[in-house]
Design a protein around this nucleic acid. Structure first.
Lengths: 217, 217
DNA sequence: GTCAACCATATTGTATACAAGAATTAGATT
DNA sequence: AATCTAATTCTTGTATACAATATGGTTGAC
């Protein structure tokens, strides 16, 4: 069962939510969306469930599907968990990472450096995603890697937005290099701390995140 | 949308999978189960999706829904993540826990002690669940608490089974007391380490887990 | 005798029809 | 005039009918 029509619809809906077409609290009309996508309500409802499980929609019985964007508190909580998950990945990866993966990390970082000097946020984020993804994989724990990637995807729009702040790309860049050095030296705790601090929302990052929220809300 | 008929069916199916009625790799027949539950295929398929998202089923397009029990490797991976999540909860809870919650932890522990002397595994596990749940809550991060509880539930049947091994309940008990002491003293790292070791599968626990798997498989 | 291809059957995915519940509006009463 | 109630309408939840695909068996050919 579960072919992929529901999946493609789920992806499109996800994009529509991320790009702001539907705002927090909006109710999604089944029949309207169904004819808009040219399908019946059945696969659309399946897509709703996908999105509900990943937290983007709230399904209220007999009421409908409502867009559910995380508020400031929940967002900070999610970033705290993300920081800890990345820290664990780093701690494990420091002991288990392969030479080939290290080379890939260095390559991703040099691509990042190019993007920084060009001021290309999109290119930077794309390479940044590869960087983190490699570390998830190299934790040697595919369940952990999956969970980390899932949360990363959920926070992606916010992380991307953060990079637009002045000087933030450069800071992120130098943190990346610090992370690679810790991994190269197999220093587990150093890698964990570096990743935790890289992701955690604290200090100036907190205010920047709050500013981002105000703009979208 | 999403009333709770699909949810009750999902719970019942979950129980059927846990109690061994359906084994790993079994295909669940939509029409048979639908008439068995006295509903149509529609809500049943919704239940399938719930279970698939929580990892108990694998939905293969045009093929059907197959029971998917984690193998030894995945199980170890999940326990590793669980240990780290609990460690984070403990680290945060050590700084944020309330006096009332500490009292509840002590009470849960004394109920545990009663169960240990009575050799009552079910009673012990019930109180054990409360113990861990309190720590999740007291992390002060409800997103983290939710994620921890989700994984805890997924691993529940295995954790329960582990307690049946000789001496294991007593060991778990003394680890609980050590955890409470660390939390009382607000020793964040000590609490984290105690919880990680309490949950992690290593040493003799590894062989016990493998033995459990052989029995169910 | 074995392998391959085709047909029949069964099962999943999708659409539509039907039923039940919630919300809104209009009407009546205070 | 305002509020409460009732009825209508709209929307969700469920069932069933239909279509498309995969699977298994049978038959034919090499």
């Amino acid at each position: 069962m579960e072919k992929r029509r529901a999946d493609t619809i789920a992806e499109q809906l996800e994009a529509l939510i991320f790009n702001g077409t539907y705002a927090d609290g909006d109710r999604l009309d089944e029949v309207r969306l169904a004819e808009q996508f040219g399908v019946s309500r059945t696969p659309l409802r399946e897509a709703f469930q996908r999105l509900a499980l990943s937290g983007l929609l709230e399904l209220i019985p007999r009421r409908g599907a409502f867009v559910r964007q995380p508020g400031p508190v929940e967002l900070l909580e999610m970033f705290e968990v993300m920081a800890e998950l990345e820290a664990v990945c780093g701690r494990l990866a420091a002991l288990r990472i392969s030479e080939a993966a290290l080379a890939e990390l260095r390559e991703a970082n040099s691509s990042c450096q190019t993007a920084v000097t060009a001021g290309d946020v999109e290119a930077y984020y794309s390479e940044n995603e590869r960087f983190h993804s490699i570390i998830y994989q190299q934790s040697g724990n595919s369940f952990l890697a999956q969970e980390a990637a899932k949360l990363h995807k959920r926070l992606q729009p916010f992380r991307r937005q953060q990079l637009r702040f002045r000087g933030r790309m450069g800071q992120s860049m130098s943190e990346h290099e610090q992370i690679v050095r810790a991994l190269e030296a197999s220093k587990a705790e150093a890698a964990a701390d570096a990743l935790r601090n890289h992701v955690a929302v604290q200090g100036e990052k907190f205010h920047q995140l709050m500013a981002t929220l105000k703009n979208t809300a």
